[in-house]
Design a binder for these strands. Structure first.
Lengths: 198, 198
DNA sequence: CGGTTCCTTGAGGATGATCAACGAGGGTGG
DNA sequence: CCACCCTCGTTGATCATCCTCAAGGAACCG
């Protein structure tokens, strides 16, 4: 959870509904608003010349997203789309800055949040760079469970398609599928009726 | 430049000398200190099982490094070594936090710094993932010039060995060399007596 | 059912990694 | 000044791996 909703509304924030696949901002847009998810989820991604996508992050209930460029007056390095129907609160950059000035504890939370994001990015870069597909996929799955605070000892269903896993790991669908089959044989994951469990 | 030196010393910071290749902290160490470079430079990197290294960042004069884990009570995701003989200021985490409380403007600078780092990491992940060697190297070179505020229209010497470029880009030395030769032929870089200009 | 999305498999090819060997340059000490 | 060493750069051959392309099957939903 980020900023208190009442506080946000007091400062003039508005909630907006986005349908699945609606774009919230485009890569290279100037960052002008603070966004916080009330309901639903948002995916930040890049796509390269050949249309291949790479998912930089997924955010849901209560999370804010796309804040870093706000603080440094930059354009967005990724595109944000709603990955489900979502309700998202929008507040202008100027007002967010005023809130931060008025509430030092919020400023500190943001600092911690940014620190956490850097930490996570450092770790995930470490995993992705120069590692084998199985390693990348395993990191992705572990990370998913950690983020959702699921018990690590018990298997749970992974709510992502093979293509989505490919976009997260920078691999191709077929590679993900083949790697997952091997991991299944080696009992590192289980697959039941094409559904993936880890 | 980060925190004022006088202020740091007032709060009990100490300056320490590190020789080239001295380790400042190891991956998985608990983060207990704030580090700020007075002179020299520091490289943060990971190495995988086969000893291949990936450089996550290089910091020099006046920069601080390794802060994110401090704010979230985490272990270091990278190892830090002095890439030249360096003088580095060290301050305990607790005292840093006190400084942040006392000086809201410093807290804000940190927030901006963290935001900048995330932004840079997002951009560099975008470049590295699923891109051709030439693309990765070009991004690295452009990034180097930008960071050092060098004129982008004029060629300047790149102070990195082929191996260092490989560690930054996650490629192998030989691949870097072959790609650079091609880029040289295509006049995208110039090479004179093995020295690289961009 | 019919359509859509997702999953799966196989064959073939491109590309970066690996291994091995050698060349170039720069610094040091005799 | 030269011989040596050490680091860095370079090249070629071969290999492993992931990507690409093409095709078809399974699951789900109206």
């Amino acid at each position: 959870m980020q900023i208190d909703l009442d506080l946000l509304f007091t400062w003039g924030a508005v909630a907006k509904k986005y349908m699945k696949n609606d774009v919230i901002f485009y890569e290279d847009d100037m960052a002008l608003f603070y966004y916080q998810i009330v309901e639903g989820s948002v995916r930040l991604y890049n796509s390269n010349d050949e249309g291949k996508e790479f998912t930089q992050g997924v955010f849901c209930n209560g999370n804010s997203f796309g804040e870093p460029p706000l603080f440094i007056n930059e354009i967005y390095p990724t595109t944000a789309i709603a990955s489900q129907d979502s309700i998202i609160i929008k507040l202008s950059k100027e007002k967010l800055m005023k809130i931060l000035e008025d509430y030092p504890s919020i400023k500190l939370s943001f600092l911690e949040l940014m620190a956490k994001r850097i930490y996570d990015k450092t770790v995930s870069t470490k995993q992705i760079i120069n590692q084998k597909p199985e390693h990348r996929i395993k990191s992705f799955l572990e990370n998913y469970k950690k983020q959702n605070q699921l018990c690590c000892t018990e298997k749970s269903a992974i709510p992502y398609t093979r293509q989505e896993i490919a976009d997260f790991t920078g691999l191709r669908v077929e590679t993900v599928i083949r790697t997952l089959s091997e991991m299944n044989k080696a009992k590192k994951v289980s697959i039941d009726k094409h559904k993936l469990y880890f």
